[in-house]
């Protein structure tokens, strides 16, 4: 018993102290994963805030956006033109979803809209495979002028390796999240979005177009998906397996709350760093490979204390 307690409570911290450079590396890898989880979660939050719809298709939107980019490039379109066309594709997708999926289902229960996004997921999987095939594709990292080398930082008697693409991913994610935050905080559309999020009926009564807001947030979620697809695609490759990674946003949402942009960011970082530390320092005790469920465990443990999530709104209903 004493040995088990030592392995759980003491040994991991001894390891952290013994190899501080390695601990820094773990923190960095967790940070990069976390920031990418936060980006995906942000896509969910934007749509949920505006429409109350939990968009199950956010994961496949990441894959679809990345596949479109690489597919266009492979078809001979220059990289930056392909990127611009991808933005247009995501705009078309947003308009299509608003017109063909959301508008006909307005006033239907939330679960119906949720089911519709599951349908949209399978439609996009089929469409993606039909157009681009099922083969994995290599992200056009260099063509988009993204860096591909690495820096080695000699510190604390060891080495911390930073991949340039990871640094770029972190910078782009922070810039994108800041831009979206400012846009929705300080612009007329942003205020309209928040009004819709607070009360659909009241927003409609003051002349806010629900359809327009929905199209805008789906487009914003599409841009977030494109950025995530480029970054994650550059780290591994672009394949349909990426949508599974995108589901990592679910525990982030449980943790951060479905309606909070800061919650998505902080939740992403907690999950990203938490699962890395958990896997590296505690995972080997139970055979490793715990990362798949550890994120959910962290989120559920948090939920016991704060059912509304870190920054979620506490709903009080009087009966």
């Amino acid at each position: 018993m004493g040995e088990i307690l030592y392995l759980i409570l003491i040994d991991p911290f001894v390891q952290m102290a013994e190899l501080p450079d390695f601990f820094l590396q773990v923190l960095w890898e967790g940070f990069v994963s976390g920031i990418l989880y936060a980006l995906i979660a942000l896509g969910f939050v934007l749509i949920f805030k505006a429409s109350g719809v939990f968009n199950f298709a956010q994961g496949i939107m990441v894959v679809f956006a990345a596949l479109s980019l690489v597919g266009l490039y492979e078809a001979g379109v220059p990289a930056f033109l392909a990127l611009a066309l991808c933005v247009l594709i995501m705009l078309g997708l947003a308009l299509g979803v608003e017109r063909l999926v959301l508008r006909p289902l307005v006033n239907q229960p939330d679960i119906i809209l949720f089911m519709a996004t599951i349908g949209l997921t399978y439609f996009l999987i089929g469409l993606g495979e039909f157009i681009f095939g099922g083969e994995p594709k290599v992200m056009i990292t260099e063509e988009l002028l993204l860096p591909t080398g690495s820096y080695a930082w000699e510190v604390m008697g060891g080495l911390v390796i930073f991949q340039q693409i990871d640094i770029a991913a972190a910078v782009i994610a922070v810039v994108l999240m800041t831009a979206l935050g400012l846009f929705f905080q300080n612009t007329r559309i942003g205020r309209a979005l928040r009004a819709v999020a607070d009360d659909h009926q009241a927003a409609l009564s003051v002349g806010i177009s629900l359809n327009q807001i929905w199209a805008i947030v789906w487009f914003a979620a599409g841009i977030v998906a494109l950025a995530t697809g480029i970054m994650w695609g550059a780290r591994s490759d672009v394949s349909f397996a990426l949508q599974i990674v995108a589901l990592k946003a679910l525990p982030v949402l449980v943790l951060g709350g479905l309606t909070s942009v800061p919650g998505a960011i902080v939740g992403g970082l907690i999950i990203g760093v938490g699962e890395k530390i958990g896997e590296i320092y505690w995972g080997s005790m139970i055979g490793g490979g715990i990362e798949g469920w550890l994120a959910y465990f962290i989120a559920l443990a948090f939920l016991l204390v704060r059912p509304q999530g870190l920054f979620g709104e506490r709903i009080i209903e009087r009966v």
Binding site: F22, Q25, E29, S236, L247
Partner: peptide, 22 residues
Amino acid sequence: VQYPVPGNQMQNQSSQWLNVRR
């Protein structure tokens, strides 16, 4: 020394390879 990669983590292996590095 074993490093299992769950099916839903195939494209997210940095933890396994950090363990390899250690």
